[in-house]
Design a protein around this nucleic acid. Structure first.
Lengths: 336, 336
DNA sequence: CTGAAAGCGCTTACAG
DNA sequence: CTGAAAGCGCTTACAG
């Protein structure tokens, strides 16, 4: 292994000068720099990242903390984030904390972060108090995605507005009896997304003077499987809704599958609208509210890196716009 | 920041002893160990990973190299790998190299690996010669997944056998005119999977004396979208097949969507079988050949860690079994 | 513009 | 069982 001293010797300068020349710092004469670069190249020199981290305190690594790598939303956030990190010369430390709900144990601990990363990206995760304190104590630059935070900046969509757009779309088509899949009636600890999306639905219905039948408001955990279960329940009722708002595309695909099972035609018998614009939404002609997930990952990462670089930061919330994508799963309600 | 010296001072011993006591090495008296642990705890001491890496040469980090984080197969491999790494006290450095096909630039370079990780997991990726040499030069422990390798161990399924099982299933049901979606007729450089799956299909058809109509053999890039396109082409032919083998569930879902568009009923008019057992396969009643992806990630990681720990390793190939999961998308062919 | 030297915070032979 | 000391390979004031 060739070290910085080998390069210094070969170039006939001190290690300090090699260090400066290689990192492109000023106060090095062009000739010297050239000699150093030449020597480094001919020796195939590669600085030891652990040595420079120890000396400088910087790691050029960012932790990306996520509850489920396999879910569509998280995979795309990771993808966007890793793209800009790579471009900026940072590495991705993936912290897959497998969230187990609000009562999970504290999953982020200091051995994952201390002296290991320069910053932390928290992807739509409920932080526990001890984790919050840990991050503060380590003075770690942090940016969150999805869930606005009291302490750090956040990039997200407006969940209330999003379901509102979906609901308005159905109402505009003439629907009055509309079901909802994906609700959490009470806000989970620190995790407002399900409740916000449900609220967007309820509020919009209310604004139009429409009832929300409690029976047409079904839980789900964002998976297609639970969408299927919810859809079966919802669509086999005597007074079944003429349309359904689902809190995610995967839920919506489940609802559509339930409709097929029950020999109901979409959109003739029932309209379905989702949220996300999942790859499979197009395939199934699912009308949805598209959100730019990769882009949220990229934005959050840029924000984080500017904090890491020392720029001041508050806890501002960047809300990115969503768009209605009309496809074949929504239409006017059937004539009674 | 409290360091090892603070702990040594508080415990009244040398830093060497603290180091040994904290890492659980032998040759430390129980009383001393106890004093050290007590001191460390009361000072809330946390060793600096970069300092110990520099001194020991070990990082306790493993690189997971993947071409696409967002695809089902890769996300699940990552998930399985990160699970066992976490359990064993290792960290995951995610290297998202965004594979651009056989002619991509060299994407793994030494600054990603040198002195940064203890081992590398290569997930179904074509390695280029320079990358291969880099890994050799760094004497990096390596395990690959999906693609057998000349130099390192591999965990994978038998791709030829997998499509063979799918094809046999259809033949057993009475199908004779069977189409295939997902083929690459020539093996892509270093990436035999598509060709192997196609071969499994062709060989099986041949064994049963059945023709493979070139027109019923359609390309696809494993995405649902390309499955839709392939399905449209295949199923709108005059002599359309009575059944289709798709090289992945996402492709198969695309084919099923194409069938719906063409008002063909699955399985009455056409049977469809996929590979993977994707979450959405169940939802759509898709018959498939299930492969345990998380488990392959776990197995590969265990193998890698044993190499990292110094156990000898060759380039053996571990082939994990697949299973036919019969659902509602396959049945006997329609009566002529 | 350049160098000598201290320091980052550990681990690891080597003695005893 | 324990300690003194060298060493891992850089960066960073501090001088000049």
């Amino acid at each position: 292994m060739t070290t910085i001293s080998d390069v210094a010797r070969a170039a006939g300068v001190s290690v300090a000068t090699v260090s400066r020349a290689l990192r492109g710092l000023d106060r090095v004469s062009p000739q010297t720099r050239d000699r150093v670069l030449r020597a480094a190249k001919s020796l195939d020199y590669m600085p030891s990242p652990t040595a420079s981290s120890l000396a400088s305190g910087k790691t050029h690594v960012v932790a990306v903390v996520v509850p489920y790598v396999t879910r569509w939303y998280f995979a795309h956030l990771i993808s966007g984030a890793s793209q800009v990190l790579r471009d900026k010369g940072f590495h991705v430390l993936l912290l897959d904390v497998r969230d187990e709900g609000p009562n999970r144990a504290t999953l982020l601990d200091s051995r994952m972060l201390f002296k290991r990363v320069d910053g932390v990206l928290i992807l739509s995760l409920r932080l526990q108090q001890p984790e919050r304190e840990l991050l503060q104590r380590l003075q770690m630059p942090v940016v969150t995605v999805g869930v606005p935070d009291q302490d750090w900046p956040c990039v997200r969509i407006d969940d209330i507005a999003t379901t509102s757009i979906a609901t308005e779309h159905l109402i505009r088509l003439g629907h009055r009896r509309i079901g909802y899949v994906g609700g959490d009636s009470v806000p989970a600890m620190n995790f407002p997304t399900p409740a916000d999306r449900a609220k967007g639905f309820r509020d919009t219905m209310g604004r139009h003077g429409l009832d929300v039948d409690p029976g047409s408001f079904v839980m789900g955990d964002w998976s297609a499987r639970s969408g299927l279960d919810a859809g079966r329940e919802l669509l086999s009722r005597a007074d079944r809704p003429t349309a359904v708002v689902a809190a995610s595309d995967e839920l919506a695909l489940g609802v559509m599958a339930a409709a097929r099972e029950l020999a109901l035609s979409v959109p003739r018998d029932v309209s379905v609208v989702g949220i996300d614009d999942h790859e499979l939404a197009e395939l199934h002609g699912l009308t949805t509210i598209a959100q730019p997930v990769d882009e949220q990952g990229r934005m959050a990462t840029r924000l984080l890196l500017s904090t890491v670089a020392g720029l001041p930061t508050g806890h501002e919330v960047a809300t990115v716009p969503v768009t209605l994508v009309e496809r074949r799963s929504t239409a006017a309600p059937p004539r009674p």
